[in-house]
Amino acid sequence: METVIDSHNISKVYEETAIPVHAVSEIHLHLERGEFTALVGPSGSGKTTLLNLIGGLDRPTTGYVEIGGVNITKLKDNQLIDFRLNNIGFIFQSYNLIPVLTASENIEFIMLLQGRSKSERETRVHELLRQVGIEDKHDVRPAQLSGGQQQRVAVARALASKPRFMLADEPTANLDSVAAGNLLDIMAKLNREENMTFIFSTHDARVIDRARRVITLQDGRVISDERYAQK
């Protein structure tokens, strides 16, 4: 087994407010390669905060996060940005894509940041669009895509950088149930066929059903962590 994410006793306290908010408290999280994990819990329970911490978008107040054995909490700003670029695939809830770029340009963009060659970029963009099933929309800008199609482009873009794991904060929140189901199918397939590691937060019971591990947060603490057999 290969450890992908290891968080050591991380806490996040927001001190800007009159009463400090303990958004995340003393969380030990251990994710192995190939896991398909849902992060659930009521609104304000700390899901986004925790994902931001393990995704290197924010720094914990105490504790540290290791990704693939690298302590990312210690990295300098530019190192952290480069680390995210090369190790983590992000899928956000909305406004995922660069509106002035077409679907294929959005996917290519991340590989350009990585400095990949033109020929590699072109073949990969093609393959990724096919994998998420929207080859016909390659030349269309995000505003002309449905919510579900936009999220599929986001998945393709996240994959493009060949990340160690994929991190998604409520990826289906703005989708209807059919589109949400399709997106989960794509994610599950990637998990199954390429052993891609996923961690995503969600409120949606049908999405939770598809997860093989469900971590429940409440008031910034893990209150349950359950694994299910392959569904």
């Binding site: 940005i81 480069d82 995210r84 670029l85 992000f90 995922n96 991340i110 940041l113």
Partner: peptide, 16 residues
């Protein structure tokens, strides 16, 4: 703001 934040999150350096 969100869009630029997203670009930095994805891995675009601040200099860029």
């Amino acid at each position: 703001t969100r869009e630029i934040g997203m670009l930095i999150a994805l891995g675009m350096r601040r200099s860029r």
